[in-house]
Design a protein around this nucleic acid. Structure first.
Lengths: 195, 195, 195, 195
DNA sequence: AATGAATGAGACTTCATTCAT
DNA sequence: AATGAATGAAGTCTCATTCAT
């Protein structure tokens, strides 16, 4: 789209920023949010502390980037892979993805989403929520979903439940199969919604 | 039962311990778990740091006490106040109490329960869970609840959902009516369970 | 000797003081000098902190008592049990007792004797040293010990060596047989001294 | 061998580390091991506490460095200066160095070596001990030392004695001539060993 | 663009000692 | 004579951030 090609220097800068980012992800996943320190990140990324502050203006800035990317990844991923015929089935499928995404993110990472400190970053659920609302609206139009509640509320209801399920799982340190549990519980919930 | 009355000194000691405890609650509620420090607690309680350690083995010990008391309060409160005739209605009532309890605890306090660092203390939900299981079992015996799932799993399911609801509420800083939302959502879920 | 019999109160006081003393010994032996705290001592002795300070005016006061008693015990013990015929053999025997005494005191207790902080208490070796000097003097009179060095210096020499041996042993946490090693090493040294 | 010259920054960093190290030595020497605190060290070195932890992992790490350097110094020093013809004389010479080394280190510093807390660091004597063993072995080969005991045991024996001598000296606050005493006492001991 | 030395406030915890009861 | 609640200074260590080079 007419973007100028990057100079070698710019490329290297981006690569450095990514290296920092990945190091942060890695540490957070392995040692948890509380243990995530600037010095550790820079060591792992093979970058000086100063350089790190060159790319991110604060520790929070790194975290924000992490959540932003995670969200982006999830949205694009799911949108392109709902295959089932009926909308209720697609909803279940949607949450299958949601579970899979959390498993892939790792328990530690997931736990962070339940950290009140992180609240700030949870604008994140917005696009995911919208997506689900659209799905429900379509289901109501096709008369596959009951119509006594509006899509916004139903979507929120489902999401709230899903988050409860994930929280429970993270509490148990991911020792059981989140995807199976999610599938089952959401299945029950969705059955309530059929018209 | 023949207990000796406390000396004035003993009374004062208990009062001091309570003062420390209340100071901790207060700070946690106002500034959140992460900001809860030993020095702040002792200042607020008007005691020396040493006194604090005289009464509590460690910072964690204070937290454990907080959660223990909260749990105790909730359990006794609820047990004595389920009035509805049918078990499904009692279950809804049970979660009405759960919502009310969280509202009473305050948003901040509630948020703390979703802090992964607190995981350790969430043995706490155990008695509450047991209580719910007993309720469901009774409902199955009375044929008011469907029998294709065992009480343990049903209880867990409901609890997971309730926690999701509370988390959502805490995320929104308690700006809407938790009790109403809880009542409605749990109502939907319980309707799934009737036989 | 005309001493008045103790009143029951005085007896109890002495017994309490001993209980404190024994508790201190016990803790020092099990957990080491650094871990010896006033609160622990009072707990173990079943006495209040205040009472402890009634009997001893400071923590150091307790320590001084410990070393004083140890010294007293050793002196009287050894004096009455040197049985060998020749003086060189008696010297070896003397250090057998010294070794046995240290073993009985426990490694931890023994290590304390090498703590610079304790220096103050090491007036303790005085009577033990005198005893040894007397022994050597007797040996020189009986022409069993060479006479080119005076008793004071010889005694000091032997004592220095013995202390080295004990230190080595305490360094190794008492994992080998101090009595055997002492016997052997002192034997070698004493052989140097025979005339 | 082609090492790059240090930048001014690197030089300054090394100087800072040395300043911390020297401050620690100094305090230890003047006030003793027990009084050696992190805050005092940083004040004396004119650096922040943080800087201290930038260069040393922990307080123990500083101590370890002190003992390591002392050991290193002693080993290299002695190795290159044993001039006597006969091995027994070289052994005496060896301990002359040992005495001189302790005198140079200062009484306080030396006392620390007898602190049980330091035990951990007394792997330190290892190379010194090995050196002595080699010496004795050579003496046995040359038939200058008696062969009824193995070098390891003889070396240990001598060392134990030497340590006793040093301890005695440190107890007396270095008020007499350690080098003379060591020379004399070790002389006596070595005479026992000649074949 | 990059380094990493340096800061320093602030966290938790320990413990000998005092003193009102 | 006895209690034990209360003190508070002192200790070690952590870590986000800054800035001279």
């Amino acid at each position: 789209m007419g973007k100028k090609p990057l100079t070698r220097r710019q490329e290297k800068a981006i690569e450095t920023k990514n290296r920092i980012y990945n190091a942060a992800i890695d540490i957070m996943d392995k040692k948890g949010f509380e243990k995530l320190t600037i010095v550790d990140i820079s060591k792992k990324a093979n970058v000086s502390v100063g350089a790190l502050y060159h790319y991110f203006k604060s520790k929070n800035d790194i975290l924000a980037e992490i959540f932003r990317k995670a969200d982006e990844y999830f949205s694009t991923e799911v949108i392109s892979s709902l295959n089932k015929a009926s909308v209720p089935d697609q909803i279940v499928e949607y949450f299958d993805h949601y579970a899979k995404f959390n498993v892939a993110s790792g328990v530690e990472m997931t736990q962070q989403l339940f950290n009140p400190k992180i609240k700030f970053f949870i604008k994140k659920s917005r696009p995911m929520l919208t997506l689900l609302q659209d799905l429900i609206r379509k289901g109501q139009e096709k008369k596959e979903i009951r119509m006594d509640t509006d899509p916004e509320e139903l979507a929120r209801f489902l999401f709230v439940m899903a988050r409860g399920i994930v929280f429970e799982w993270s509490l148990h340190e991911g020792r059981y199969d989140l995807e199976a549990t999610m599938h089952k519980y959401i299945g029950i919930l969705v059955s309530t919604l059929r018209s």
